[in-house]
């Protein structure tokens, strides 16, 4: 308990209320804590409205004990809406990774941003734009390896409503593929 701070990976997922970014954070934390055997803490903030308004989910992952539960300096920021981008894009630490859904975010003034049309990929892959949060998880894990692909797939299917497991698996795979294309492209 008196040890030093264990290295932390800090992830911030943001979108509009209703886009499922809080659920995405929960799934990511479950992948880390239940299936990869790491420590994880998930926190969230949202407006009082049930839909709309910027919604933010934070996940801290570490091999050791996690004390302060919130993101202090984000290694990764994912934004799925313009409002979320405007509010949180600047919170990624220098050298960190900013993933932007350029299908939903039109005005992107950060050259280092990794732009992937997450909303459109979701619609093309599953026919349902509400799977965008799962596609985003695929992109995130594909680009960072913060949890294993096996872990995130188990966590996604465990949380998917009955009968939608395959659809969510496909959405996740679409995210993995998009991440591979970015990596092969060699540039952000």
């Amino acid at each position: 308990m008196t040890g030093s701070i264990a290295p932390r990976t800090e992830i911030r997922l943001a979108g509009e209320g209703g886009q499922g970014m809080i659920l995405a954070g929960i799934i990511l934390a479950e992948a880390a804590a239940i299936y990869d055997g790491k420590m994880a803490v998930q926190t969230q903030s949202y407006g009082p409205e049930a839909r709309g308004g910027a919604s933010k989910s934070e996940v801290v992952i570490s091999a050791g004990e996690i004390d302060h539960p919130e993101v202090l300096s984000a290694d990764v920021v994912v934004t799925l809406s313009q409002e979320a981008f405007d509010k949180y894009a600047s919170t990624v630490k220098p050298g960190g990774l900013l993933i932007v859904d350029d299908d939903n975010v039109r005005s992107i003034d950060v050259p280092e941003a990794v732009k992937i049309p997450i909303g459109r990929l979701a619609l093309h892959t599953t026919g349902k734009s509400i799977t965008a949060n799962t596609v985003a998880l695929g992109v995130l894990v594909g680009l960072t390896g913060v949890v294993s692909r096996e872990a995130i797939e188990k966590a996604v299917t465990a949380r998917a409503p009955r009968g939608t497991e395959e659809m969510n698996r496909q959405a996740l795979q679409a995210g993995f593929t998009a991440a591979e294309q970015v990596r092969e492209g060699g540039s952000k």
Binding site: A33, I34, M39, A40, V41, Q42, T43, I66, P69
Partner: peptide
């Protein structure tokens, strides 16, 4: 609110 809404294993 932090402890109430925080998720941990």
């Amino acid at each position: 609110e932090i402890i109430g809404h925080m998720r941990e294993p």
